[in-house]
């Protein structure tokens, strides 16, 4: 694979013992279980198919690199209005995390991961927090619109990175609702602020630990 496709910032070029997508495509792969069952004729067919997929992967990564560059530029600007731009990049961010996982042999992301990958992992992991937050909001208000919003922003995992506490998260969610023209949801969330004030905004955990209330 062309070594220039990914910069060192995103994917370390040399990480002994770690698996990269190239390894999956490597015709010289020595996986014993595969070697046992693959005849020379089969191997020839597989190598040709893998070579074609390698080309597809290279083109895909080139496109991805461009998207990442745009996302990085948006993040660096740290402008709230970039939320909408970043949302469109979410799919690519998630893909980078998948890529990072793949090159590490599909193990959980761990301490060996570079700061860049760790950041991407955090971005990805935040997705669950947002989903939980929205579920908590749905439970406390008894309104399914939050769950609907959760589906809309499901990929916007970077939100938690931007949010320092529950209030900010709520504001960001409202902003996203506006971005996606979910006015009903936005209004609903605004109305819920008063309710949420009762429980406090100290941190995300406070909100997540709320018990469902009777409507």
């Amino acid at each position: 694979m062309n070594e220039n496709i990914f910069s060192n910032e995103i994917v370390p070029q040399e990480m002994p013992g770690l698996k990269r997508p190239d390894d999956f495509l490597d015709a010289k792969k020595t996986d014993a279980t595969v070697e046992k069952i693959v005849s020379p004729e089969k191997k020839k067919i597989m190598e040709a198919a893998r070579e074609e997929r390698r080309g597809l992967l290279e083109r895909y990564l080139l496109k991805l690199k461009k998207s990442v560059a745009e996302a990085k530029e948006a993040i660096n600007k740290k402008i709230p209005m970039q939320v909408q731009v970043l949302a469109s990049m979410t799919t690519e961010v998630s893909t980078i995390v998948l890529y990072a996982q793949a090159i590490r042999g599909k193990n959980s992301l761990n301490e060996k991961i570079s700061p860049k990958e760790r950041l991407l992992a955090i971005l990805s992991g935040g997705l669950n927090d947002i989903a939980k937050l929205l579920l908590a909001l749905a439970a406390t208000t008894g309104n399914a619109e939050y769950a609907k919003l959760g589906a809309t922003v499901y990929g916007a995992s970077w939100v938690t990175l931007l949010a320092k506490n529950g209030r900010e998260i709520l504001h960001i969610l409202k902003y996203i609702a506006n971005c996606f023209e979910l006015k009903e949801v936005s209004d609903l969330m605004a109305k819920s602020e008063e309710t949420l004030e009762q429980y406090g905004y100290d941190n995300l955990e406070n909100i997540l630990e709320l018990e469902p209330t009777e409507q």
Partner: peptide, 11 residues
Amino acid sequence: LGEDKEELDFW
């Protein structure tokens, strides 16, 4: 048919 499951799962 003998193809590498790990590689295909990646796709």
